[in-house]
Amino acid sequence: MRRGIVGIITIVSALAGILWLGGLAMAIQDQFFAAKAPPAGTAKYPKEEKTDNRGIYIVALGDSLTRGTGDESGKGYVGYMVDQLRQKTAKPIRVTNLAIKGQRSAGLLQQLGQAEIERQLKLADIIVMTIGGNDLFQGGEALKLAPKQIEQAKASYLRNLDRIFQTIRRINKDAVVFYIGLYNPFSDLGDAKQTSAIVRQWNFASAETAARYSNIIAVPTFDLFALHVNDYLYSDHFHPNKEGYKRIGERVASLITFTEGDEK
């Protein structure tokens, strides 16, 4: 009996050994001698149409504001907005946050060119976005920029923004886009008059660009942070804190309405 077991184990082991040797040979053949045959390009990427009409699909794009940097709960305005919307509607809400910290308008434009991002946007019912904060403030350095440099940054930003809106509308012509404007994080500093003017002009030009497209709504936040700015800013004096994000989220949520049947 014992002899039998040992014999079987020995034979099984030997066969397994041959199999693993084959695997090793295959590894060497594949990694060192295989003909290079890269897979075909992205041509066959699935282009499915939106089929699920029961839920609401929200896609968030942009920079650290949309990401929620500074909110210790990590929700950001997108999270608070969804909290509000869940009280308004019984429909299931699904969110995909594609925002990247530190992203500028050029980066976002590039991101929109990716096939998967395009697919996500196509499926979206609502798109929320922030962009431009890093174009203008460049990590809090805007205060030191000369007016001429700011004009330059603004011109290239507006060009990018226009192409961003154009791309979004080409991919998805129905979804409502909420473009969230900038506030002035430096409004309690000495040169507040100057910086506020710059931000106001920046916002105005952005809103003008948004107005050229249907269903792209520029949502102001400048007023939300105008008084007591430090109560709403995170310790980096740049990003909003929890309270600040809550206010932005509530404002965007107040703009979203649902058709009669969906209301709670």
Binding site: G17, L19, W20, L21, G22, G23, L24, A25, M26, A27, D30, A34, K36, A37, P38, P39
Partner: peptide
């Protein structure tokens, strides 16, 4: 570098990895 990238069916991929693990 994606120049040498090629497709492998998973069974082959697993067998290759087992061969290397054996080594």
């Amino acid at each position: 570098n994606t120049e040498g990238v090629h497709l492998l069916p998973q069974w082959k991929y697993v067998l290759i990895e087992l061969g290397l693990a054996w080594y």
